[in-house]
Design a protein around this nucleic acid. Sequence first.
DNA 1: TCTGGGGTCCTAGGACCC
DNA 2: TCTGGGGTCCTAGGACCC
Length: 390
Amino acid sequence: MPIIVHIDMNSFFASCEVKRNPSLKGKEIIISGKTNRSIVSAASYEAKRKGIYTTMPYYLAKQICPDAYFFEGDHEYYSKVSKEIFSFLNKRYPLLEMASIDECYIDMSNIKITEPEKYFKNLQKEIYEKMHIPCSIGVSYNKFLAKMASDMKKPMGITFIKHKDVSTKIWPLKIEDMYGIGKASSKKLREIGINTIGDLVKSDDERVKKILGSYYSHHIDNALGKGISTLDLTKATPKSVGHSYTLAFDSDDIDIIKQSFYPLCEQVSNRLKSIDMLGYTITIVIKNSQFVVTNKSKKLMLPTNDVDKIYLEGMKLLDIILKEKIRLIGVSMSSLIFAKDYNEQLDFFNLQHYKLSKSDQFIEQLNQIAGKKIFIKAKDAKIYEKKPSN
DNA sequence: TCTGGGGTCCTAGGACCC
DNA sequence: TCTGGGGTCCTAGGACCC
């Protein structure tokens, strides 16, 4: 039987602030933006005890805990702490999958553990003493159960789930507490009488299959304790890079929207450049006053990470869908490719591109990119000279 | 005064090709 | 007159997670 461990940092952002400034230990700490439209993204247990929860509007948190220490959130620092912790763990445990900024799975099947209670208590203590971040640990034989286990006791909890515990520790839980079942699915499941994870296991209802779609057997396997235990050790390359911004007031004033939109394009461009990637598909997203989200996307002929190109294409899409006052605007790039891979492909593919496209336009686009990040060598120009006669 | 921002994965319809 | 089917790509939208 594999041994899969899930480690979840407790109130991670708040704990990072305590790590940086230990005098905050034991205080009410709230991470949140400071506009009337901000929400709480993390809170210390002291604040949680007062009723603060993640996603609570800032103005409410401020009402309930006026004297709490409020931080706007320093993601760069939190990422740094995250890396510190996981590289520390990774040195000892090579089979580690980083699942998010504050949690990871570790396959300890090959680690000799004689006294599990003591072993994990020591590990938790060591993380706290070395990294100054508290964590909860879940130990089981697959990822789903380990994840559910680490969630059961917080902060600084340690929970074991053995095969025989599945029916007693997992099945009685509310259906919305099942990892992977969110608000929409749990509402539909409750409507047909499925209120607990146990109900889901016992159901043999076509309606359940319809609600869960392609995830059906995945969820059933998880609930039965037959989930997967293989870890993904490779850090996946990003599939999209995006930024969004909620306006201070809903607006349809194009100048105001533009002012917010350009910096978002800059952020996306800078992020792409920092990871040396280009994106083919640009997507813009808006949210109206009623919180209805609308996307518009377009695949470009050539990938880019150029801010002006992103802004230009984004504004074109925005023009099409902007019909009313909006609350949020966002832009993201997807269908990403590493710049170096694109350079290598360029020689090979530009013939095809060329044949498919109106020549002047294509060369202009090539040159636009050439002027920025990607170099177009002289021999590419030669292809341009030669090939039209074909 | 309600309700952020960063992602991933899946579905479904239409266009297009063979 | 009535009319295939398989496959891929693109776009829009939805569910979910931290």
